[in-house]
């Protein structure tokens, strides 16, 4: 099989990833303000820059890893340890020598802020880094990591402006749904490649067409369902009170976290049983 030939099927995850980056930039217009909070003056770097740097790093890192797999892994492991060691020392120094009272001593410390920039760089570039890595290496973990890092980044972009203004800041319904579409199509597109890459597979065409049709159909139904809450208006959902937020979180955690944990553990156990 000629791997160098680019096929339409292989373009699906790449285009979806690119679209997700564009839509994310449009949804979170206040991205710069969070960066300014992390480090004053950093706000001029827009999300597409982080996105692009993550993608380039992923391609470059993969090339280096392919040539020197052991050395690269050693380097990455040691770098993370140095980063962790650095934050420990930075916090300790800030507590001893910093200005101000309590937490202010740590948050106003420059060494801690430098670490914050590094952490922010990792968080902001992780979606594209993991996404591209998922396309290149076809790693399921990288694909999952892409979705998770988008969730962390989106949550960060929501928490800071809401906490600063003490109000609930909503998202555009159409863009939100389109953003979820792009991530879902990225995930499903990777699965289509894995399943239908071999062009000699009997019945490939009809099977692929059926899976694509059903994915679009189910996502369309999901979009209709997802649009309903946007029509409710703010109501209780939009109240920014500590007790309301805690109450909602408690209900969510008690009911859904165990289900989520059960689903994940069952998935892993099933896989282990299947692989022997």
């Amino acid at each position: 099989m000629n791997r160098s030939r680019i096929r339409p099927l292989h373009l699906v995850p790449s285009i979806s990833l690119l679209l997700s980056g564009v839509i994310f930039t449009l949804i979170f217009g206040s991205f710069g303000s969070i960066e300014d909070w992390v480090m004053k003056g950093l706000g001029f770097v827009p999300f597409p820059v982080w996105f692009l740097s993550g993608a380039i790093l992923s391609i470059g890192g993969h090339q280096i890893w392919k040539r020197w797999p052991v050395g690269t892994m050693k380097f990455v492991r040691r770098s993370f340890l140095i980063l962790l060691g650095y934050i420990g020392i930075a916090v300790f120094v800030a507590v001893l020598t910093g200005e101000g009272e309590g937490m202010e001593r740590i948050t106003s410390s420059d060494p801690v802020r430098i670490w914050g920039i590094l952490a922010w760089f990792i968080i902001a570039s992780a979606p594209s880094f993991m996404g591209v890595l998922g396309i290149i290496t076809r790693s399921r973990w990288a694909r999952g990591g892409m979705a998770l890092s988008y969730a962390i980044l989106a949550a960060s972009c929501m928490i800071y402006p809401q906490a600063r203004s003490a109000t609930i800041i909503g998202q555009d319904p159409l863009l939100s749904i389109l953003f979820v579409w792009s991530i879902m199509i990225y995930m499903e597109g990777s699965n289509w490649i894995a399943r239908y890459e071999n062009e000699n597979t009997p019945g490939r065409g009809p099977l692929l067409r059926r899976q694509v049709t059903f994915t679009i159909l189910f996502l369309a139904v999901g979009s209709l369902v997802a649009y309903i809450p946007f029509m409710w208006g703010e109501g209780r959902f939009g109240i920014y009170e500590e007790s309301t937020i805690l109450g909602k979180a408690l209900i969510g955690a008690v009911v859904l976290v165990p289900i989520s944990l059960f689903a994940l553990s069952k998935g892993f156990l099933d896989r282990r049983a299947k692989n022997g």
């Binding site: 928490i159 939100s176 979820v180 999901g222 997802a226 109240i239 909602k248 979180a249 859904l256 976290v257």
Partner: peptide, 25 residues
């Protein structure tokens, strides 16, 4: 499940949409 909890905590329509769409799928 995780997106639903996050949607409740952050009152985020984006996370709610993610939760409902993946559940529908």
């Amino acid at each position: 499940a995780a997106a639903f909890v996050t949607a409740l905590v952050l009152s985020s329509e984006l996370f709610l949409a993610a939760s409902l769409m993946s559940a529908a799928l």
